[in-house]
């Protein structure tokens, strides 16, 4: 099981290891019977993560969940084709 508290703040990187930021929030939507994560809202750095607690609508980059290649303890790795 992965928990939200683990996922929030997790580093996101593209498949060449380039850092893309950190997860601020997840967007889920129904997919058949399940609620499935559709997108990651990513902020550039840890500090923006903290600022997100104070600002109503922080600036985020949306990464569709279909771009996720793998998730482990160290972070989320994206596929190469996400531009």
């Amino acid at each position: 099981m992965l928990t939200y508290s683990r996922l929030r703040g997790l580093a996101v990187s593209s498949d060449d290891g380039q850092p893309r930021g950190r997860v601020l929030d997840l967007i889920v939507a129904p997919d058949g019977e399940d609620m499935v994560v559709r997108a990651l809202l990513v902020v550039p750095h840890r500090f923006a993560l903290l600022a997100g607690r104070f600002k109503p609508r922080p600036k985020t980059t949306t990464i569709p969940a279909s771009h996720i290649a793998a998730i482990d303890e160290n972070g989320i790795r994206l596929r190469g084709n996400d531009g």
Binding site: M1, L2, T3, Y4, L7, L26, V28, D31, D34, M35, V36, V37, A65, S66, H67, I68, A69, A70, I71, R79
Partner: peptide
């Protein structure tokens, strides 16, 4: 919140993160 990471439904599909 707990999520479960499921493999994609078919070969080459991205993994699904289910709430």
């Amino acid at each position: 919140l707990q999520f479960e990471l499921e493999p994609g439904r078919s070969e080459g599909d991205p993994p699904r993160l289910v709430l």
